[in-house]
Simulated assay, not measured.
Amino acid sequence: MSYRYCYWIFTLCFLLVGCRKSTEGTVLSPGRATVSRLPYEVKAEPAVFESAFFPGKQVQQHSSTIILRQQLLGNLPVSSGQLVATDPITLSAQTPCFTTQFLRGRFPVELAIARFTSDERVAFAHVLFSAKPLARWELAVLPGQSPLPVRGPEYYGYLVDGGMALFLDAADVNRFSHFMADEAAAKNLMITCFHLDSAVPVPGFLYATSHDTLAAFSTGFGDGSYATYVGLDAENQPCRLLTDFQVLAWQ
């Protein structure tokens, strides 16, 4: 067999493999956070949105003490500066992003996990854009939505129907929605990677496909409508994005 013939066989095999649609992504190792900050005296309310991510945090609720632990999922690539928070089941190419323009780069996604007697639930998920202290929170809005007060009787939220949610860059929504249209890909992300068939499911992770990287995490006690908030620093620059999964009472 000639070298030229072997070369063309190898090239054909490479193209066939390379063109085959991948139905599985990869769970990434968290690595080291690109942004970190020390605990400080939080003045922006609700204070628990920030202090829940401080080591050793405890809160009193219904005569019980809830201990919070923090988990780094990894550093989320933000290429457009626009972010989407959504349920993967309802994700489509038309899913809108928040109107806030965030920094571009790679930023830590962290979970604040509430420990109960025999259970753990994700209370908050956030993206940490800077180490600057918070000055205030505001409700994240989509195009066409009017601002609402953080402590008001109404809020905007995204619906969760699969017990999990995502943070991803708006530039990745179209590709990833097509990726998730594949049944095997959806099963890999929503069941296999969360270890739902085991006694110890994982609360979240960074997930990478051939083109996109996103953060996936469980949503409190499961399905519901969950509000997302933008934290701003003293210069009125966005420094946090946080979803509250209604595990801790703060109203």
Rank of each mutant, 00 (worst) to 15 (best):
L159W: 01
Y158V: 07
A165L: 09
C193M: 13
R151L: 09
G152L: 05
A131E: 14
P147K: 06
L168H: 08
A135C: 03
H178V: 05
L139N: 08
I191Q: 07
P143A: 02
R121K: 15
D172V: 03
S130T: 00
S130F: 03
Y158R: 15
Y158A: 11
D182S: 15
Y158D: 10
A186V: 00
R151W: 00
V122D: 06
A171N: 15
P133G: 02
L189E: 04
Y155T: 11
V122N: 14
G152I: 02
S198R: 15
F129A: 13
V150T: 14
C193W: 00
P153E: 08
Q145S: 02
L168N: 10
G162D: 14
A131C: 03
L168M: 15
Y158F: 15
M180C: 06
V160H: 02
F179M: 05
M190P: 02
L189T: 09
A186N: 07
K187L: 06
S146M: 06
P133H: 00
F176T: 14
S146E: 12
S146W: 00
H195D: 13
D161K: 11
L134D: 08
V127S: 09
S146V: 00
L142T: 05
S130Y: 01
L189G: 08
P153L: 04
V173I: 07
V173C: 09
M190R: 12
A185G: 11
S177K: 11
L196T: 10
G162A: 13
D172A: 15
A125S: 15
A181T: 08
P201K: 10
H195I: 01
V127Y: 04
A165R: 11
F124H: 12
A140S: 14
L189W: 02
A171W: 03
P153I: 02
V173Q: 13
Y155Q: 13
G162R: 14
D169K: 04
L139P: 10
A186Y: 14
P133I: 00
A123D: 11
P147D: 12
R136T: 01
K132F: 01
A171L: 13
M180K: 05
G144W: 00
H178C: 06
H178Q: 14
H126V: 00
K187Q: 08
S130H: 01
T192R: 04
V160E: 05
R136D: 03
G144E: 09
M164E: 10
R121S: 09
L159D: 08
D182F: 04
S198Q: 15
W137C: 06
A125D: 10
M180G: 09
L196C: 07
L142V: 05
P133T: 03
P149M: 05
A170F: 01
A186H: 05
R151M: 09
E154T: 01
E183D: 14
A199N: 07
R121Y: 08
D161R: 14
P201L: 07
L128F: 03
F167H: 03
V150A: 14
D161C: 04
P153V: 05
P143H: 02
V150I: 15
V141K: 15
P147V: 01
V141H: 13
A165Q: 12
T192E: 06
D169Q: 02
A135N: 14
L134C: 07
S177T: 09
A186D: 05
K187S: 11
Q145I: 01
A186G: 12
F194S: 02
E154K: 09
P133R: 07
A184N: 10
R175M: 02
A171K: 15
P201R: 12
E183K: 12
G157S: 06
A185H: 07
V127M: 10
A170D: 06
E120F: 00
